[in-house]
């Protein structure tokens, strides 16, 4: 119980309560429509960071896990009429297994070769779905939303609240990994895999664990997508945009700390939403690119690194 009363526990609880109050309050419906997307990217960036940030394995396959999560929901909804929470749990299991499987096949590759292999996973998954008529094939599938669960007025508000809970859970998991021996092992193998092995770090097992957890969280983020859109089709569900924004969010925020991907994803996804509404929906891709370049050049350690640098410029300079 003492753990729950820590500042992090209080912050997490406050976030959930705030999301609940907002969802039940009178804000404009569009706020929830956009807020859901921002929270979804918080989950994706946080999930990406578990493998990409802590272990240093740059995964471009986020879209594959996200899309498979969405398609798991569609399959369960169409065949069994399963409720949303069941869809999300199933998506976690399926994409967790997918993470484990792809990890087993690809984690022996390092650096750029690993990244390229993960891109392939997207195309494999997308091609499979295009050719599977039952889940809509290439043309996609229309879905009728059931009535929202009480006490929420609309389905979008409910999804907003659910995604807020998922985001808090994802961050809590990432934070646990970061501060526990798992995170220490992952950081070690990011630095020098050989030395990590010499020290008795079970490198392959830890990488597989990270891959599985990261994949499962990405799948959960994708699971409510069909209900959010009332429609699902392969090209947009497996869009590289998900991979890029997840990665960019983590890098822009800072990969060393759990707070980094949260800040980065909120900043990036909010900017995208604002640009989509005020300028054009094509411009939002440009925003990601420009921000990524600016951060890589000006603040390679992300927002968190920048804050740290500004807070103690002298201490850093005075170090021997």
């Amino acid at each position: 119980m003492r753990r729950l009363a820590s500042p992090f526990g209080i912050g997490a609880a406050a976030t959930v309560v705030l999301a609940g109050v907002l969802a039940l309050g009178g804000a404009n419906e569009y706020f929830f429509f956009a807020g859901y997307v921002v929270l979804q990217f918080v989950v994706l960036a946080t999930a990406w960071n578990i493998l990409g940030g802590y272990a240093g394995y740059v995964n471009f396959g986020t879209a594959a896990f996200f899309g498979i999560g969405a398609y798991t929901s569609v399959l369960l909804f169409k065949s069994l009429g399963a409720p949303l929470l069941v869809q999300m749990a199933a998506a976690a299991v399926v994409t967790g297994l997918l993470g484990f499987g792809t990890g087993l096949l690809t984690l022996r590759l390092r650096g750029i070769f690993y990244s390229i292999a993960t891109v392939a996973v997207i195309f494999i998954a997308e091609t499979l779905m295009i050719n599977w008529r039952y889940v809509g094939g290439a043309t996609g599938l229309q879905l009728l939303r059931p009535a929202p669960m009480l006490p929420f007025e609309t389905y979008t508000r409910m999804l907003f609240f659910i995604m807020a809970v998922v985001a808090v859970l994802a961050v809590a998991i990432a934070r646990y990994i970061e501060i526990s021996w798992i995170g220490r092992g992952l950081r070690a193998l990011r630095d020098t895999e050989e030395a990590a092995e010499c020290s008795g770090v079970p490198t392959l097992r830890l990488k597989l664990l990270a891959c599985t957890i990261s994949g499962a969280l990405m799948g959960v983020a994708g699971a409510p997508l069909p209900m959010y859109l009332s429609f699902l089709e392969p090209a947009s569900s497996f869009s590289l945009n998900y991979s890029v924004v997840a990665l960019a969010g983590a890098i822009i925020g800072g990969t060393a700390h759990w707070l980094g991907p949260v800040l980065g994803a909120i900043l990036l996804a909010s900017m995208q939403q604002i640009v989509t509404v005020t300028i054009s929906s094509e411009m939002n891709v440009l925003v990601v690119g420009v921000m990524l370049v600016v951060f890589v050049v000006a603040a390679p350690d992300g927002i968190l690194g920048l804050i740290r640098k500004l807070r103690r410029p002298r201490a850093a300079a005075g170090k021997p």
Partner: peptide
Amino acid sequence: RLFPKLTVEENLLLGAF
């Protein structure tokens, strides 16, 4: 083959994995 981006103490703690 140290872990160059980890602190001295973290390096030592990893030895006791």
